[in-house]
Design a protein around this nucleic acid. Structure first.
Length: 739
DNA sequence: TAGCCATCTA
């Protein structure tokens, strides 16, 4: 009797007698093309009594678990629970494996405990690796770490304690739960290690960011040479991942020559490509890319990221358009590349294109898009994305990344209240979520609240990291909380184990100097355990400029320019400093110097989003379609300001006059933020606040003008400048005029 | 009758 033409035909065929034996029938089962066929097979097996044989039942359950086209572990479990005979160990193993690697590792561990308590079977060399895989699954969390250790104990007492598969599974478990040292101990004392043992160790170290250890083990493996185990493709993949994270370009190149440039698998070539991109060597990446005979979407996506990182967005965009089947990861790569490359507008446009192309955004897409909104101050778009998330929560699990991005977006778009709401309603809060909220409060000048939140974070058993300290210190700075800042910096290392870095010292210098405590600031700078870097001198210079401390400011500026000769902001601050003390000839010298060195002051820009459209203004801008109305409103505002006794800030005005080359920036009345405020008054209506984003710090004249406008027109104005927020209401600003 | 390690996007 010839075998049936297709598997499906087998189960609709006349009778079991069509088959030479049960064996043939079971072989057909392994080729089951879909779920419906499997159900018919199941029914037929029931009718024929085949399920009374544990062996046959195991085959059916295995088929339900492994067939890629219709794998359905829960169906397998239902079959399992209705078996008339006790299942054999094979069947238990298959079922544990299926749940360990798909979705429900808890259930796999539960099945393992049932195996122990309900059956006479003892776990074998297959059972342990499957159960350990379940214990290592991220979804299981801390209880997995406990269960895995218990499994280790059982392994030690079992005959499989030196089985290399079991050993490797233990190594993988310890690596996955972050106990790298336990893995290392086990690895060091194990009698048998194969290439998978090494790979597991190197991969775990690379994943944990312990790249030096990963690379050391790679070298160690290499040194053992013929006496040891030869690395394979997986080893190289792990080593390359470590090289990429550590920017170890030379080692990466060495591995490349060691592996040999030719005859590489696509996966390996892509990994080399990624390593070169992460190490910042576009040349190596391009050379490899051009040589590759076979390329897929991953190759192109990786190359695209490299081009974008090197600033060549045009080539990146072209390559993107050439990718044949773009999945969401391709879109994410370019959307994030734009956003991280300071091109939020392009990022947002591409995000819109993705939606129009019916690409379902995932968490990565939304994190990037929210960050682009935050950069642009595009509150409406940000709100829309938040709404999209709520509508699509079935496939978008709200993780800490998304919560952090939402808080950041609402904070930076001027809606602190919504940021606080998101924070309050967030489920699990990791240190990034707390830090984002602390930063948000800091930007609004709510330093006390930021410090309180910082303490509350610790009461919730979340320990602060370096970023949390930067944020809380900068909150202290915005609110003038000198004592709190000093205490926090002092306690960082002894009480929290976080080593202060340059940014922390810079924040502290900022706190002291802004508060006028220049002696203390200078003492701090002189006593730093590390040579003071650009952020430290920048903070000192900034404060000197506001307080008119000329001599100290000159020194700070000199030091800053030694480190960053092309820092145009330093020149601008220095000229502001001279202007403040009326030294106009010095102001002129600085401007001349800037010109000679080919530097220019970054022009002031303000933007405002109305109905999802971002309107941009330069100083003296006449390009807006509603320029007539805007300038008419501006006239009205200026008259109102004069009537209420507002006199222009003359120091700033003189500074402006000296900048002859910047013809458009002639008068304070034409500052971009004033144009934006005028536009806000004519294009929006109360009670919605006027939200304005400014790329530089707001000048004192515009600041006091905004206070008067908020009172005269009864409008709230939320102005985000380079550093922080100013919330104007009833003639007062949230910053309390301290900024 | 099966198994441990694996590239890109935050």
């Amino acid at each position: 009797m010839p075998p049936p033409a297709t598997a499906a035909a087998a189960f609709v065929g006349p009778t079991i007698s069509s088959y030479a034996s049960d064996h043939a029938f079971l072989e057909v089962l392994d080729r089951c093309p879909d779920h419906a066929t499997a159900r018919r097979a199941h029914a037929r097996m029931l009718r024929l009594g085949l399920l009374c044989h544990p062996h046959h039942a195991g085959r059916l359950i295995a088929a339900c678990c492994v067939q890629p086209s219709w794998r359905d572990p829960s169906y397998a479990l239902r079959v399992f629970d209705h078996l008339a005979v006790p299942p054999d160990l094979f069947t238990w193993n298959v079922l544990i494996r299926a749940h360990a690697s798909s979705g429900d590792p808890h259930l796999a561990l539960f099945l393992f405990s049932r195996l122990l308590s309900e059956t006479p079977h003892r776990p074998d060399k297959f059972t342990f690796p499957f159960a350990l895989k379940a214990a290592a699954a991220p979804a299981v969390g801390a209880s997995g770490a406990r269960e895995g250790r218990a499994l280790h104990g059982m392994v030690v007492k079992s005959p499989f304690r030196s089985d290399v598969f079991v050993l490797n599974s233990l190594l993988n478990f310890y690596g996955a739960v972050g106990c790298l040292d336990d893995a290392r101990q086990l690895f060091d004392k194990s009698p048998k290690r194969d290439v998978v043992s090494w790979n597991t160790m190197i991969t775990a170290a690379a994943r944990a960011g312990r790249c030096d250890e990963a690379l050391a083990m790679f070298r160690e493996m290499e040194m053992e040479g013929r006496a040891g185990v030869a690395p394979n493709e997986v080893t190289v993949l792990a080593a390359l991942s470590a090289c990429g994270q550590k920017r170890e370009l030379e080692l990466g190149r060495w591995i490349h020559s060691f592996v040999g440039a030719a005859e590489q698998s696509l996966i390996l070539s892509n990994a080399f490509l990624d390593m070169y991109v992460k190490c910042g060597s576009l040349d190596d990446a391009e050379q490899l890319f051009d040589r590759m005979v076979q390329k897929d979407a991953v190759s192109m996506t990786t190359m695209l990221v490299g081009l974008a990182k090197a600033g060549n967005f045009e080539a990146a965009g072209q390559l993107f358009d050439e990718i044949p089947h773009r999945d969401v990861a391709c879109w994410n790569a370019l959307i994030s590349a734009y956003e991280q490359g300071g091109r939020p507008k392009e990022s947002m446009e591409l995000f819109r294109r993705a939606l129009a192309a019916s690409v379902a955004p995932d968490q990565v897409t939304l994190v990037a898009a929210l960050s682009a909104c935050a950069q642009m101050g595009a509150l409406d778009m940000g709100r829309w994305i938040h709404g999209y998330m709520n509508k699509n929560h079935h496939h978008l699990e709200q993780n800490s990344h998304l919560t952090t991005s939402l808080i950041d977006m609402y904070s930076k778009c001027g809606d602190l209240e919504r940021a606080l709401e998101v924070f309050a309603s967030a489920g699990e809060k990791n240190v990034f979520v707390w830090s984002a909220m602390i930063a948000g409060l800091g930007m609004y000048g709510r330093g006390k609240a930021a410090v309180e939140l910082f303490l509350e974070m610790q009461q919730s058993r979340v320990s602060p990291n370096a970023v949390a300290f930067i944020n809380v210190l900068s909150a202290c700075s915005h609110a003038g909380l000198v004592e709190e800042g000093e205490r926090l910096l002092r306690e960082m290392l002894p009480a929290y184990g976080v080593e202060p870095q340059m940014e922390h010292y810079a924040a502290m210098v900022d706190i002291l100097a802004r508060a006028g405590r220049f002696e203390a600031a200078v003492d701090l700078v002189r006593g730093l355990p590390v040579p003071p870097g650009a952020p430290v001198w920048g903070a000192l210079l900034g404060a000197c400029a506001t307080h008119g401390k000329t001599a100290l400011g000159e020194e700070a500026c000199g030091r800053l320019l030694e480190l960053e000769p092309r820092n145009d902001g330093a020149y601008v601050l220095l000229s502001n400093l001279y202007a403040k003390s009326g030294r106009w000839e010095a102001v002129g010298r600085v401007r001349k110097l800037m010109k000679e060195r080919g530097l220019a002051k970054e022009p002031g820009r303000s933007s405002m989003e109305v109905g999802g459209v971002v309107h941009k203004f330069l100083a003296g801008d006449t390009s807006h379609p509603r320029r007539r109305e805007i300038y008419a409103k501006l006239e009205e505002i200026m008259a109102m300001l004069r009537a209420s006794g507002h006199s222009p800030d003359t120091a700033g005005l003189v500074l402006q006059q000296i900048e002859e080359e910047e013809a458009k920036e002639r008068a304070l009345s034409l500052h971009s933020e004033k144009l934006a405020m005028a536009f806000g008054l004519i294009s929006t209506s109360p009670p919605s606040p006027i939200r304005i984003m400014k790329n530089l710090r707001v000048c004192e004249d515009c600041h006091s003008a905004a206070k008067l406008i908020s009172m005269a027109y009864r409008r709230e104005i939320v102005l985000r400048d380079r550093h922080r927020f100013h919330h104007f209401r009833d003639g007062c600003c949230s910053c309390g005029d301290f900024w």
